[in-house]
């Protein structure tokens, strides 16, 4: 059994580590530093940490001003508040002038758990994708999170990093994993279908691949950490090779990874597809694993979607 770490924990540690190397990094939080793990940075660099109180819109604007003055701000809160409450501030004051602000939002998706639908962001990728020039990275595990945060620092412009509360398996090993922004990672190869997953769904997609293998079905599993700009070349290539594409995300099937992949394929290589995700519904209270099961974000549901799609080929 792989070690399990929440991506928010990896974020907090990485941020503090980068803070030691780069004095321009400043961090802002809206009264959730214990939950988002920015408290690690705050304790080490109190003068470079700004609490805005419960005021996400102001936080986004302050970050823009700090960036305009040469700082590299990371702003953190729950994904629903970052991308929802402060959407227009991110759009107009951060992204329109292409300011160098990193929006690292935690508690994305339904695995927030018992807090329920008000706190479960299933639209954040859709919102951020619609903003011109926004880079979106959705790491699959703790290792990828560390790479993602460092990569975001190298990008001159706004980046949205989507992080989770729930402990998830570590898939990638620090030593031999190479993270390239904008490039998908092929984790399994197979001729029958292609599963394209993002975030915490990648570990689940790998389990689905194992189930299918036992039934004699071989699939590609591709981890897409960078949802925008997306790896069009790889997606088109694997669609051509297998003729069936299944996307898996802990997000609405509207506007997220599934939509992004569908857009690429519809224009370049129309392919049979099935999108796994929240089917235009809000979440609800429950334990993370119960919720994943309730909303059919499981290895079994991915595996049966793959089989159904192969039957349609």
């Amino acid at each position: 059994m792989a070690e399990k770490i929440a991506t928010r924990d990896a974020y907090g540690d990485t941020l503090a580590e980068l803070g030691r190397l780069n004095k321009d990094i400043v961090v802002l939080d809206a009264d959730l530093s214990k939950s988002t793990k920015t408290e690690v940075f705050a304790k080490e660099f109190p003068e470079r940490f700004f609490n805005t109180g419960i005021a996400e819109q102001n936080m986004a604007g302050i970050a823009a001003g700090l960036a305009a003055a040469g700082k590299i701000p990371f702003i953190s809160t729950f994904a629903i508040f970052a991308t929802g409450r402060a959407f227009e501030q991110i759009r107009n004051t951060i992204a329109y002038p292409r300011l160098n602000v990193k929006i690292a939002a935690t508690h994305a998706g339904i695995t927030v758990g018992p807090d329920g639908a008000s706190h479960q962001s299933v639209e954040d990728i859709a919102l951020m994708r619609a903003i011109p020039g926004m880079t979106i990275i959705n790491p699959a595990d703790a290792t990828e999170t560390r790479f993602a945060v460092k990569a975001a620092l190298d990008i001159d412009g706004p980046v949205y990093i989507r992080l989770g509360r729930h402990k998830v398996p570590v898939i990638f090993q620090e030593g031999d994993y190479v993270f390239k922004p904008g490039k998908g990672v092929v984790l399994r190869e197979g001729k029958d279908a292609t599963i394209i997953s993002t975030g915490i769904m990648t570990a689940i997609a790998l389990e689905a691949a194992d189930i299918l293998k036992n039934r004699g079905i071989y699939v590609n599993v591709v981890n897409i950490h960078t949802i925008k700009p997306i790896d069009e070349e790889l997606i088109i290539q694997l669609a051509e090779e297998t003729g069936a594409v299944i996307t898996a995300e802990e997000h609405s099937i509207i506007g997220g990874l599934g939509s992004a992949v569908a857009e690429v394929l519809a224009e370049s290589r129309p392919t049979l597809m099935k999108r796994i995700g929240l089917k235009d519904v809000f979440g609800q209270s429950g334990e993370p694993d119960e919720l994943l099961k309730f909303y059919s974000l499981t290895p079994d549901s991915i595996a049966s979607a793959v089989k159904d799609l192969i039957d349609k080929k």
Partner: peptide
């Protein structure tokens, strides 16, 4: 600027920097 209510926040960031 242009969307009202946002400039003061940005000014806060500049002053803090």
């Amino acid at each position: 600027t242009g969307s009202l209510g946002q400039g003061l926040s940005a000014a806060n960031g500049m002053a803090a920097a």
